[in-house]
């Protein structure tokens, strides 16, 4: 067994545990919304993205157009493009085009964060290990949630419904606390999102477009008011 690969696997375990609980909630919600457990697992195994999957679910169930689906995924997952750009500078010589094609699939917020935090460069063995445990956790959690979720008592199901949002808050709040621009962007996006929900007329806009409009406007306002200096952390 390759030592770097084992190290990656090990670093992936906390991510996998976090994913397990969140994807359990996703699987449960997907089946509750009318998908089969196999469909829920297929989404998780091919997408590996919490926010994109959560936003995609109501679009599927509501019969939205494929263009709206594509645009929603593009906006919500645009951040991965930036992470890939950033991580590209950290890869060593073992990461040729084929290896990059494989690893790209698993560049999630958490995997990116752990890989970026490694000293020096990272190679294919480490990254393959690091992507495997979270992938298994994400897929297995969806399967368990989809199959067993409806068997759980109602109070457990409603308590689990909040898990994924807890994870979102844990991702955005620590940087919002440290950096004023991030705080501004989050508050603006949240305020706009509240307007789209509660103001008559505005609340007829569909969920995918609401996220696109809020995210693009808030990030653009943030970029205009607080352009980052060269070398700022992404």
């Amino acid at each position: 067994m390759n030592k770097e690969w084992l190290k990656g696997l090990r670093h992936g375990i906390p991510i996998a545990l976090g994913y397990l609980s969140v994807s359990f909630a996703f699987g449960m919600k997907a089946v509750g919304d009318g998908l089969t457990w196999l469909q829920a697992v297929l989404i998780s195994a091919t997408n590996l993205t919490s926010a994109g999957q959560m936003a995609g679910l109501p679009l599927m169930v509501g019969g939205a157009g494929l263009a709206e689906m594509a645009l929603t995924q593009l906006t919500i997952n645009l951040r991965y493009g930036l992470m890939s750009l950033s991580l590209g500078r950290k890869l060593d010589g073992s990461m040729g085009t084929l290896q990059r094609l494989i690893f790209s699939f698993a560049n999630t917020d958490e995997i990116f964060a752990v890989a970026s935090a490694q000293p020096g460069t990272v190679g294919k063995h480490y990254l393959y290990g690091l992507m495997l445990t979270p992938f298994l956790g994400w897929t297995a959690g969806t399967l368990l949630g989809g199959v067993a979720g409806t068997l759980l008592p109602a109070f457990v199901r409603s308590a689990l419904g909040i898990a994924i949002y807890g994870m979102f808050l844990a991702i955005i709040l620590p940087p919002a606390r440290k950096r004023k621009p991030v705080r501004f962007v989050v508050l603006l996006a949240v305020t706009m999102s509240l307007c789209f929900r509660y103001i008559p007329g505005l609340n007829r806009v569909s969920s995918g477009f609401v996220i696109i409009i809020c995210a693009v406007a808030a990030a653009a306002a943030g970029a205009a008011l607080y352009p980052e200096k060269e070398g700022d952390a992404p």
Partner: peptide
């Protein structure tokens, strides 16, 4: 800057 603020805006609006 726009790209680096996108994740926070998306997750805020989704939450």
């Amino acid at each position: 800057s726009f790209l680096s603020y996108i994740p926070f805006a998306v997750l805020g609006a989704m939450t």
